[in-house]
């Protein structure tokens, strides 16, 4: 078995420049795949996070907002009772104008917008938590225009923009990963053919003295697998660096802090890394096998 490994590494050394190109292309492809996987994971988590927080806001009209501190007016009680009886609704909370203003002050503490907003511009609302967050639109149609209601907003539609942004990040990285993967596959296939060609005398002699086809071809497969695994390791390293030097800085900035759940080191090393190693090894092996079957008749 030693022999086979020695041959494989001799092969990688012999076509050193090709081997390097092969590893780099594989690494980029797998790195993009990894980035895509991380995006998917972030999207899932963001959805979990937001779906537990978001609600449908039924804003009440000016008279109710101005006078009702605890939803005791007939209009408010009526709406609340009706909403609580609705099977789509999990729970209903009343937020008076004063409560809303207090929350507003908390959220935008220290920002200039505070100077512009008076309590009068904020309505009292019934915060409706949905049993199924995806069906908020139904509450919107049912309650828009009802007496005492100013407007109804499904917060999900606001968050949807964020999701669609994350979704396009994911799609773009996956798309690039596929293109790069194609380049990597062709390079691996090409290198194996080249490697087999440069070693045809040796392989011919091996066959002559009774080496099995398997035995003569395993070194080429190992070359491919080593490429895939080394590429995956480099890709994982790249993702770690990307996380430390790019993502962590971006996430700590004002815009995205606390908006998107952060990606942890365990996501990169514990989840994406192993996935990439397996994917890299499997794809490289498959490419190697198919190449040997189709193009290398020794």
């Amino acid at each position: 078995m030693m022999f086979v490994w020695r041959e494989a590494f001799a092969g990688l050394r012999r076509n050193l420049t090709m081997s390097i190109a092969m590893v780099i292309t594989t690494a980029i492809s797998l790195g993009l795949l990894g980035a895509g996987l991380l995006a998917v994971r972030t999207i899932d988590r963001t959805e979990d996070l937001y779906y537990s927080l978001i609600a449908v806001q039924v804003a009440l009209d000016e008279p109710t907002s101005a006078d009702d501190r605890d939803c005791s007016s007939p209009v408010c009680t009526g709406l609340r009772g009706e909403l609580e009886a609705n099977p789509l609704v999990a729970s209903v909370e009343y937020e008076s104008r004063d409560d809303a203003f207090a929350r507003f002050q908390r959220i935008y503490a220290g920002q200039s917008i505070l100077q512009l907003v008076r309590p009068q511009s904020l309505p009292a609302t019934l915060r409706v938590t949905m049993a199924d967050p995806l069906r908020g639109e139904e509450i919107v149609t049912q309650y828009t225009g009802r007496p005492g209601v100013r407007n109804v907003v499904d917060q999900r539609s606001t968050v949807a923009d964020l999701f669609s942004f994350l979704g396009s990040v994911r799609n773009a990285t996956f798309g690039l990963a596929v293109v790069q993967a194609l380049a990597a596959l062709l390079l691996i296939s090409n290198t194996i053919q080249l490697s087999a060609f440069t070693r045809r005398t040796e392989v011919g002699i091996m066959r002559l003295v009774g080496a099995s086809r398997w035995y003569t071809q395993v070194p080429f497969l190992i070359e491919a697998v080593v490429t895939g695994v080394v590429g995956a390791v480099l890709a994982t390293g790249g993702l770690v660096l990307g996380k430390i030097f790019f993502l962590d800085r971006l996430m700590s900035g004002r815009l995205l802090a606390n908006t998107i759940p952060p990606i942890g080191m365990s996501d990169v090393l514990g989840y994406v890394g192993p996935v990439l190693v397996v994917v890299g090894a499997v794809i490289a092996t498959a490419t190697g096998y198919v190449t040997l079957r189709l193009y290398v008749r020794t």
Binding site: R207, L208, V209, G210, S212, Y215
Partner: peptide
């Protein structure tokens, strides 16, 4: 069969 050829060649010198 192709996979038995190595056995044959191991018993022959060329």
């Amino acid at each position: 069969a192709g996979r038995r050829v190595p056995r044959l060649r191991q018993r022959m010198g060329c």
